[in-house]
């Protein structure tokens, strides 16, 4: 699936290393965010594309309504328990390569809303690349996050994403259901390691509040 697999399978390492820079440059120069406005932060997200902050200077102004056309999901606001499966499904619908920016305190850790309705951190549902603090963050901080994401993209290699294809195809969601849970060989290994306390659980880092509660 995709360019990465073909290159990985058919071409030796030397050439992919050279290609990395080109592919990453192309990717970072036109990051298309998915419109995923949730709450207050969404207004600041809108503000960041407006006249004053002009996110298009960094190639990221084209907000796509369809996740199939988006590269980065900006989770802007609090994620409620009712919204969490929807968010996961939209993430699954985005094609690789994809990144997630967790915008604001609520998306990052639950913020002031430490209660029954809010998921305490979007990192329990999807892997997050960049966290932005603030309640809400200023538009400048979102612009900064985008540039940080670009740096991160430049440091990636197409080889790194080989495993994620497996995972993505496993997680492809049947409409109306939650993501599948049984797991690949890789994930079972991780599960075992987690069970023996050898490794931290990937993508489900317990939030500040939860750690406090469990201790």
């Amino acid at each position: 699936m995709g360019l990465e697999n073909n290159i990985w399978e058919s071409l030796p390492d030397v050439i992919t290393v050279k290609l990395d820079a080109v592919i990453n440059w192309a990717r970072k120069s036109s990051i298309w965010p998915a419109t995923f406005g949730l709450a207050c932060c969404a207004i600041e997200m809108m503000n960041s594309v407006s006249a004053r902050n002009d996110l298009s200077r960094f190639g990221a102004e084209t907000f796509r309504a369809s996740p199939r056309q988006a590269d980065v999901m900006i989770v802007s606001g609090r994620v409620s328990r009712k919204m969490a499966p929807v968010l996961r499904r939209i993430y699954d619908q985005m094609p690789e390569p994809k990144w997630v920016i967790s915008m604001g305190a609520c998306a990052t850790s639950g913020g002031v809303f430490d209660n029954y309705a809010i998921v305490q951190g979007v990192d329990k549902i999807v892997p997050v690349d960049i966290y932005i603090p603030g309640c809400p963050p200023r538009p400048e901080m979102l612009v900064h996050a985008i540039t940080m994401l670009q740096e991160k993209i430049m440091s990636e290699s197409v080889k790194d994403r080989k495993d994620t294809f497996e995972e993505e195809s496993r997680h492809s969601v049947v409409p109306g259901t939650l993501p599948v849970t049984e797991g690949t060989a890789l994930e079972r290994e991780i599960e075992e390691e987690v069970a023996q306390n050898k490794a931290p659980r990937p993508y489900t880092v317990p939030s500040k509040h939860e750690r406090r509660r469990s201790s």
């Binding site: 949730l38 709450a39 207050c40 606001g77 609090r78 409620s80 009712k82 919204m83 929807v86 002031v112 809303f113 209660n115 029954y116 309705a117 809010i118």
Partner: peptide
């Protein structure tokens, strides 16, 4: 889809702390 449980949270906050929640 954005239910935040604010009304519950008010009951656990002092009166002056509630102002912060109303902003959101």
């Amino acid at each position: 889809y954005l239910h935040t449980g604010m009304e519950k949270l008010f009951e656990y906050k002092k009166y002056q702390q509630g102002i912060v929640i109303t902003d959101r």
